[in-house]
């Protein structure tokens, strides 16, 4: 097994300490939560030398702890360091925010859900097989390179909704679509962001966060009583797997919000599908129409037309699932 590359490890006792240290290191320090994504990256080293963190700042030592789930005044607040297993098993989340609980329950494997945090999941690096190949084998756009090898290569798992800044890798967060469908907000030490505006495609990052900015809390408004939220994931394996396509929907009580992920460089809000459903009773026909609308703007690459069919099926099944209560 390869050694994890060297770094300095610092424990932050407060949010201030964490962000001050991040600022002090000017991009050379990264926040460290569950570690499952960062340590894999630090071991296999897909990035060029200039992009690795030299310092990891442990957020788990912050006091008071950022590990909590509570509901107050119709808002579910989840601390940034809450483990995915605790979200998946939380009765309240399961009852009222089931898309989120189900999404958390579908991430990777039980071991990883015991380690990984919600903020780590939404901040994971957007990647494709080329991006992830060790030792910076493919010096792609997201590493400061000049071309995207996936555009002309085997892109069977890549974006079906075009590129962002030239990148056709997909965001594989399972939590992301659930947060978008549930209209969540992400609170950082600097600002409050709507989930739909949280993600970006950068070198090499995948969020809008500044170098000295960390996620502090996730806030999810309680869905209307008659709306139902669902999450679905299509992957090759049923466990230990990234999604090929996943999605979440919140439908009912006059609301229709549908989000897909792993279909584009950023989580994809299926607004066309939402429009189709407005004012409609959910039935087979409505679901089919929504599914067609959801992929109406898809433009496949050479190897991934099949993902359009999968995405369409996911939307249709999610919509129909919100019907059965």
């Amino acid at each position: 097994m390869r050694t994890i590359r060297k770094f300095e490890f610092l424990n932050a006792r407060t949010i201030d300490e964490a962000v001050n240290t991040l600022a002090a290191y000017k991009g050379k320090a990264w926040p460290f939560a569950g570690g499952t994504d960062i340590l894999r990256m630090m071991r296999f080293q897909p990035l060029p030398e200039n992009l690795y963190p030299e310092v990891l700042i442990n957020l788990k030592t912050i006091s008071p702890s950022l590990e909590y789930i509570k509901e107050e005044d119709g808002i579910l607040s989840i601390g940034a360091l809450t483990k995915l297993v605790d979200i998946a098993n939380n009765a309240l989340v399961g009852e009222r925010y089931s898309a989120l609980a189900n999404a958390a329950n579908k991430v990777a494997s039980p071991q990883i859900r015991n380690m990984a945090t919600i903020s780590g999941n939404i901040c994971q690096l957007t990647h494709c097989l080329y991006f992830s190949k060790p030792d910076n084998r493919f010096h792609c756009l997201r590493k400061g390179g000049s071309e995207c090898p996936a555009q002309l290569g085997d892109n069977r798992y890549c974006s079906i909704f075009g590129d962002v800044n030239g990148c056709v890798a997909v965001n594989t967060s399972d939590i992301a679509p659930a947060l978008i469908a549930l209209n969540a907000r992400i609170k950082t030490n600097k600002r409050m962001v709507n989930a739909g505006e949280f993600w970006d495609v950068r070198v090499p990052g995948s969020t809008i966060l500044d170098e000295d900015e960390i996620v502090v809390e996730i806030q999810v408004p309680r869905p209307p009583p008659d709306a139902k939220s669902v999450f679905m994931k299509f992957s090759i394996r049923s466990s230990i797997d990234f999604p090929i396509v996943n999605g979440a929907a919140l439908i009912g009580d006059g609301v229709a919000r549908i989000a897909l992920n792993a279909v584009a460089p950023k989580p994809y809000r299926a607004t066309k599908a939402e429009e189709v459903l407005k004012g409609k009773t959910i039935d087979e026909t409505a679901a089919e129409e929504a599914a067609i609308a959801a992929v109406s703007e898809a433009s496949p690459l050479s190897f991934n037309k099949w993902k359009i069919s999968v995405a369409k099926a996911i939307v249709k099944r999610m919509v129909l699932n919100t019907k059965s209560r």
């Binding site: 002309l152 290569g153 085997d154 990234f242």
Partner: peptide
Amino acid sequence: DPLTGVKLNDSLTW
């Protein structure tokens, strides 16, 4: 990868 002959998914994740 058809362009380089490089294995793209040589990990148990993919």
